[in-house]
Design a protein around this nucleic acid. Sequence first.
DNA 1: ATAGGTCTGTGCCTTTGGTTACTGTAAAGC
DNA 2: GCTTTACAGTAACCAAAGGCACAGACCTAT
Lengths: 210, 210
Amino acid sequence: MKEELLGIFSSHFEQPLIDEIIEVGKCMEVPAGETIMDIGNYIRSIPLLLSGAIKVLREDDEGDELLLYYLEQGETCSVTMACCMGHTQSEIRAIAETDAKIMMVPVQKMEEWMAKYKGWRNYVFESYHNRLNELLQTVDSIAFKNLDQRLVDYLKKKIEVTNDNQIRSTHQEIAYDLHTSRVVISRLLKKLEKMKKLVLHRNYIQILDL
Amino acid sequence: MKEELLGIFSSHFEQPLIDEIIEVGKCMEVPAGETIMDIGNYIRSIPLLLSGAIKVLREDDEGDELLLYYLEQGETCSVTMACCMGHTQSEIRAIAETDAKIMMVPVQKMEEWMAKYKGWRNYVFESYHNRLNELLQTVDSIAFKNLDQRLVDYLKKKIEVTNDNQIRSTHQEIAYDLHTSRVVISRLLKKLEKMKKLVLHRNYIQILDL
DNA sequence: ATAGGTCTGTGCCTTTGGTTACTGTAAAGC
DNA sequence: GCTTTACAGTAACCAAAGGCACAGACCTAT
């Protein structure tokens, strides 16, 4: 456990901070597909992602979804932090994209460490920074790109995050993430298949070269 | 000057922090329309907005623009902070929407104050929080709403920010902010006029009831 | 007053993406 | 085996938004 944390965070965190994390944190193993946090939840712990990937998405009133970004090893969810600090409800939903191991740290420690550890402060800032940038990318994507390109980007990101160039999703699932309809995704995927960029199968997609 | 800062920030900042801000900060007056910060700029100061409003926008490779959000009195630009901390270039453009008064604080103070003043830490966090939320709203808007609704939201926000229910913009300017074309905006505005929600004039729009 | 530029209105057409509806087929349950 | 359900493919149609072209109104400068 300690070795695991050290491996991931020793470049960011001071030794005593790592000790404190181990002391107060709760380690959770979450299987792929499980919802870690949902819209409206009150949050009392901050998640540090030790392994795996988490997808973060937004939902509107009608239940339409949109993938915002993925969290990867060593990252944390700033939107969650913001909710913690403001004691407001979660604005987003987080789902384990792969099996994931998460260290949950109680919110109260957050402020304490902020004053105490420079490494923590920097980490928190860097997280915010990264999250803001990811969101800007998301905005760019939906504002400036057409669906063809967004789909290709999505597939690329997915193979990167899952580290598997077979994408084990149905067309419907992809459609949810990109906030469009199944038919449209099927159409575009077919087009990509004709361009020899991938091969379609039932329940999975084999990526050749995007 | 001191009274002005106190009026805006005394609920957030400790007295000695306010003194320091006055000591090291540079006060700038920016006329409406002027670009305060542009994409690619290196940033060495953090802006605290004393009065007026600033619009923050994103641009893609082809020069297409999109309004992200407005900053108002007492706020600061977290994206800028993030760039400061990471010593990276600005990802966004900031333009004075109205005449504005800004206190520029050198970046180096940022970290120093972060360790020293709880009020500053909280302020910085709250800013990040607010900016993240604004960005989420922006995402919602472009992902889930159609242009009719986005235009109405835009006009509402604009009269709120400028505190003037005459909107002094051309259709082309609105089109840039919403990343669409002039013709489309003219069409939708006409529709709103027919619905008695506003009256169109040359170079300005009179809002009745949105 | 005339000329040139800017702003707005509008008709027509295209593109992108979304909807409906139906088909075939693979998997899962019995 | 048969039935049911989930998944994918496709055609036809529709809607929202964007592009083009042009006209008229207004504004400014000479």
